[in-house]
């Protein structure tokens, strides 16, 4: 049996008056590919930020690979968990190779990182990773000159170099057009499978969730609405999940 990668127990988070998450509990096995869906404001991003240790939960326990998440040092945690977001995550003024090799910083000392800034170290790692996402010819390009889809692929290469066990993807394709979005998601899932990693992604497009993921966790108003294998999720459940809030949005817009 696969080991338990993530274990949430009674996680609660409150922002002033609004409850972002209330007593959320679930478990993720190694190798699972999970899509977190739900209407905006359901708590998807809060959940991901808690998993990434960016946000501290008010209550509850979070275990990553059998250890309380807060026990890890920053560097240890980077070996366990990697994060990819919608955009703006790269340093645009640096060449692509530095943004990719940033995935190695957790293993490099200060001297080696300085040296690498002048003369890229472990260059083959970056070139290999970029080749796997189809950006082999952009190694020394200034990152800001790349298109949105290409920048997301650079972010993927950073994860390839970082090699965490669990990847958290926060709306990884929301800023891209549908063709690009399919591209990036297919690539993300393929790489996760090749590296035998675990993936948790928040998505706002249900279609992507059903195509690329094997388990769907739906949140509504900070609560677990359903947690099912992707193949068992029915259209009716989905329309119910989005129904109320979309109706409200419609009313607000007209």
């Amino acid at each position: 049996m696969a080991k338990v990668m993530v274990k949430l127990d009674g996680i609660r988070k409150q922002y002033g008056e609004t409850t972002a998450l209330s007593s959320l509990s679930f478990q993720v096995d190694q190798g699972e590919k999970i899509a977190v869906i739900g209407p905006s404001g359901a708590g998807k991003t809060t959940l991901l930020n808690i998993l990434a240790r960016i946000v501290e939960p008010d209550e509850g326990r979070l275990e990553i690979d059998d250890q309380p998440a807060h026990r890890y040092t920053g560097r240890q945690f980077a070996h366990k968990v990697g994060v990819i977001r919608q955009q703006f995550d790269l340093v645009g003024s640096l060449p692509v190779i530095h943004n990719v090799l940033a995935g190695r910083l957790k293993d490099w000392g200060f001297f080696k990182s300085c040296l690498s800034f002048l003369w890229p170290q472990e260059r083959h790692l970056a070139v290999e990773a970029l080749a796997r996402v189809g950006l082999k010819d952009k190694v020394y390009e200034k990152t800001a000159h790349l298109s949105g889809g290409e920048q997301q692929r650079v972010a993927l290469s950073r994860l390839l170099v970082q090699r965490p066990e669990l990847i958290l993807a926060d709306e990884p394709v929301s800023a891209l057009d549908p063709a690009r979005a399919h591209d990036i998601l297919a690539m993300l899932v393929k790489l996760v499978e090749e590296e035998q990693q675990t993936l948790i992604a928040t998505l706002h497009t249900v279609e992507y969730a059903k195509t690329y993921f094997d388990r769907i966790i739906a949140l509504r108003d900070g609560r677990l609405y359903f947690d099912l294998p992707a193949s068992e999720v029915t259209d009716e459940q989905l329309s119910q999940l989005y129904h109320l809030s979309e109706l409200n949005q419609y009313v607000a817009a007209h």
Partner: peptide, 25 residues
């Protein structure tokens, strides 16, 4: 803040953040 947070998530130390994040930005 986004690129800095991303570098932190990749395990960068304070000095590494300075070289790879703050200064180039």
């Amino acid at each position: 803040p986004q690129p800095i947070r991303a570098l932190q998530a990749a395990g960068a130390s304070r000095l590494q953040l300075l070289i790879y994040g703050y200064l180039p930005l």
